[in-house]
Each structure stands twice: as C-alpha cells, then as structure tokens.
Design a protein around this nucleic acid. Structure first.
Lengths: 188, 188
DNA sequence: CTATGGTTTGGGCAGTCGCCCAATGCGATC
DNA sequence: GATCGCATTGGGCGACTGCCCAAACCATAG
C-alpha cells in the first residue's frame, strides 16, 4: 500500500536522494557525484542508494530528468499566459534572469545535456522532453505569426541554453541585452 | 636550449598529454579523466603527468583552453574572409556542420564552460578568450551594418554554443535550419 | 672517462570508488 | 505473542584515485 508508513518513508528517502543528486550534479559535476557523498547529503546510510536505485547513473539520470521536466513545464505554462510575441519572449527571459548560471538549475541543465550525449538511454529521454517543449513553443510562435515556427523554436531553445552556459563567464548577459536580439529573430 | 634532444622530446610528450586530455575530457567528462588513463592514452608512464604539469586540473585546463583558442581563431579568420553579413553567417554555420555534437571538439567546449563555472582561474581565462572572440565578431557585425553589434555578437556566440549542446539530441539541427532564423537577428 | 641535468619509469601511499550483503529495525498482519 | 515484509545500517570487496619519489636513463659538457 502507498499509505504504509514504511513505504511512505521509503518514498521520502527516494525523493531526498533525488534532490541531493540534483544539487551535487550542479556542485561537483555529473561524474564527480559519489554514492557516499549523495547518501551524506540526503542524510541516509550509503547502502540506501543502491537499495532504491539500480545504479548511481540511474539515480543521476532520474533526478536530472525530473528537474528538467519541471522547468520545461513551468516555462511552457508561462508562454501560454503571454498574449503577444514580445511579451512572451520578455517573460521567458525574465524567468531565466532568476538564474545566474552558477545555480543548481542552470548547471544541472548543461550537465544533463553532456551526459545525454554519452548515454543513449538518457539521450532518448531528454530528447523527448526537449521535443515536447519545442513543439509547445512552436505552436505558440505559430499562433502569434512568427515565421518558420519549428525552426525558430529549435534555435530559440538552443539560444536560451547557450545563454545559461555563457552566463557564469559574463554576468552582464541578462535579458535586457539578449531580448532585443532574439526579438528580431521572432519577427518576419 | 629548445633544440636539446631531451628537451624537445619532453615538449612532444607535453603536447601528447594535452592532446590525450582533450580527447578524454570529451569522451569521459571533465571529472572522469584520471592520470593513469591520460598517461595510457599518451603512451607514457603514469608519473609523467605530474612531472610536466603541477596537477591534473592544470593539465585539463591548459589542454581545454588550447583547443578553444584554436577554434576561436579559426572561426574569427573565417569571418574576416567573408564579404557580407549573410555570407559570413552561412560560413560560420557551415563550419559548425562539420561537428555532430558528439565529437571531441563540441563536447570539450561544453565541458570547459561547465568547468569554468566552478574554477575561477579557468573562468577568467575562458572569459578572456570568449571576450576577444565576441569583440572580433562585433567589429565584423558593425562593419556590415548589423544592429547593436556587441549584444548581437554575445547572443550569436551563445546561440552557436547552444546549438552544439543540443545537436546530439537532434541530428536535424543543422545549418540549413538554423541559418534562416539567426539571419533575421542580424538584420535591422 | 666522469659529471651534469633534464626526462622517464614504476611502484607506493593513503584515501575513495561502485556495488554488495548479512544483520537489524520496525510497523502490519495473523 | 509470533511472523512477515519492506526499509535501513554499516562494513567489506577489489579496483581505482591524485600525487609523490627513489632510481634509472641518456645526450651533452668538461
């Protein structure tokens, strides 16, 4: 049963492990996250990692995908609330201004792209999320008269990830400077 | 002297170690490159790594910076040879089509950005290279009448790195689809 | 011939790695 | 009370980690 006390505690530990994994991937880098470090951060014994997850890689992948899906949904919902092209773009970039490129979320995004380039299974899962997000953005672009919605959505998402990748090197790279440039790409 | 046989052999080994480092950073990821793996790939004894370099991190940083500088120079020179805005952009993207996002160069780029977000010294060095490249592109953009050259150059470089980050997940993300979108961002 | 100086080797140090497993804890069920 | 089943612990396995160093190698200088 889901309501069984021990089962629920188990689910909580699973979630704490995933949260710790997301933090540590960003802090140390994907391949520098160890089982003991992970268990320590989650406040559990080292053996629990391999009780709840078949392998360390599986835990990292699951945690990373969860974080990516959450932010993708959030940004997608943000677009649905926007009325015009420029308003949507501004909102999108303003949301990204909350991340400085050194935070858990930004670094985790870059890390999971890299890991996906080396792990086919993770790559397929991440491609699914990315594809869904791009289609969602493409529909929004098409509804507001942007040219070549599919390609524009693809380049827009890549550009946003690229900005987050560059931001730690240039703190000035904020939405105020980025928006006017991308705005031109969205208009015929 | 530089021409001393042993000194020259030493320089060759240094270069072989750097080449091996660039390969392995891309293959395994920055934090999964070990001294023994490195020495093996370079065909030398494990002790040589710490004879030629003060630390493993120093070797990785030096190797990565070398690769980044080389490609940045190459793309900069390519721009200088281009006549118009569109021709330059097309050439830039065509050059990137030679990389599929899973190759040594593309992956190393993403890895070094991530490493630079965690290592201030590497971050400063990489910011120098990135800054120089952006100024070079900005001058070229300004000479050809593009609006807001500085900001456009910043977004353009970020977008190109973002495309390389996404390419392993979507092999269709080639210059043919990217160029028309970015082209709009370069014109008033 | 014997230094000399830089280059190279291979093993050793203390510590960490992923993963495994017998033992234990503990609430639910009978 | 006993028994069951899932969650949890902590130690152990062999392999690997970054870094160090005594010793050997070898072309040149004296």
């Amino acid at each position: 049963m889901n309501a069984s006390p021990s089962a629920r505690r188990g689910r909580e530990v699973r979630e704490r492990l995933q949260a710790a994994a997301a933090e540590l991937i960003a802090e140390r880098g994907w391949s520098a996250v160890s089982t003991r470090l992970l268990a320590d951060r989650a406040g559990v014994g080292p053996g629990l990692v391999h009780y709840h997850f078949p392998s360390l890689q599986a835990l990292l992948s699951e945690a990373a995908l969860g974080t990516v899906r959450a932010l993708a949904d959030e940004l997608g919902a943000l677009l649905d609330r926007a009325d015009g092209l420029d308003e949507g773009l501004t909102g999108l970039l303003a949301a990204l201004d909350h991340y400085d490129g050194r935070d858990t979320t930004s670094l985790l995004f870059s890390e999971v792209y890299l890991a996906a380039a080396r792990d086919p299974e993770l790559g397929a899962a991440l491609a699914d999320v990315l594809g869904a997000t791009r289609r969602r953005i493409a529909r929004w672009l098409a509804a507001h008269g942007a040219p070549a919605p599919e390609d524009t959505a693809a380049v827009l998402t890549a550009a946003l990830d690229g900005v987050m990748l560059h931001r730690p090197l240039d703190a000035q790279l904020t939405s105020a400077r980025v928006a006017p440039v991308l705005r031109r790409a969205l208009h015929p």
